[in-house]
Write a protein that binds this DNA or RNA. Sequence first.
DNA 1: AAACACCGTTCACCACGGCGAAACAGTCGC
DNA 2: GCGACTGTTTCGCCGTGGTGAACGGTGTTT
Lengths: 167, 167
Amino acid sequence: MDVVLVRWPEEDTRLQQLRDDGSPRLLLLNRESAPPESADCLEDWIRLPADDRDVRARVARLASRAETEQPAPQVDRDGLLRYRGRWVALSPVEGALAATLVDRFGAVVGRETLARRAWPDGTPTRNALDVHMLRLRRRIAALGMEVRTVRSRGYLMQAAQARADAQ
Amino acid sequence: MDVVLVRWPEEDTRLQQLRDDGSPRLLLLNRESAPPESADCLEDWIRLPADDRDVRARVARLASRAETEQPAPQVDRDGLLRYRGRWVALSPVEGALAATLVDRFGAVVGRETLARRAWPDGTPTRNALDVHMLRLRRRIAALGMEVRTVRSRGYLMQAAQARADAQ
DNA sequence: AAACACCGTTCACCACGGCGAAACAGTCGC
DNA sequence: GCGACTGTTTCGCCGTGGTGAACGGTGTTT
């Protein structure tokens, strides 16, 4: 989603509309204006004149927040996993597993559930699921997603996190 | 909650800790430093020298956001302890203990109550509870939570406090 | 004050099982 | 036939639950 630059307080009516729309926005203040008081995470401000990289950094931060507020991956009919405007192709088995995980995005899905969805006629072997999960992990890493293991409970798909654990 | 001012990148290790704790923080950059890339709503930055009212405005905004964030931990059915948007996986015994402590978050829970919940058929050893509590402590530290001991009364779970305990 | 019992923390160790990962092999489609 | 997909075996790490022991703080008794 694009971040809108707003001169403030000159373009106040436009700002109100952006707030109502929930659009990410960066207010550009001149030397004298008092800073705005909004606590909205999708709003930021900077005082002009400003270093160009500072403006870009604040725009990037707002864009990043706007994106992460709608983390809705999707597996389409062709076995493509789409996320944040990018996609990767999945094999049939991986597609079935990914679809199951996406249905409960951010929550744990049991191995049993995954196995039933990927192999309706019975799981080949215990390790088959592990191996396919390993392959799925490697693919979705390119999209900034990850599958975390919750021991003896199942797997959980989410946006990749920098820190360990927590997971 | 108080907003912490951090010189950056000089005090990077301190910043990491604040991020882990979920404390609101304002980074103070000198003229040359590149802006940080965190999208966290509880983090903001400003370049020095800066107008004093600008600093105050950003501090106030961070404080306002920190207030509206509610610290409500939760143990879901899959044994995941969720807090402030992050989570850690708990083993079955730890999950039972954590669930009991979360039910009375911020209040004391007796050892007896905890033992009954974790081992309905009788505690294995007196030491078992202590050991599992130690392991639970280490896990939830990653979420900025802690379990405090109230001698001869039980345990109390709460958001981690800096160091000077208010008892 | 010293001795003592009590309470809690932390560590080392063990057995067990879940899971990861590589390597290999068979199958299918272009 | 080549490459992608799938299934299997094997090996080994590490999470988990339990136990004993060392250590230390606290309040009570003598």
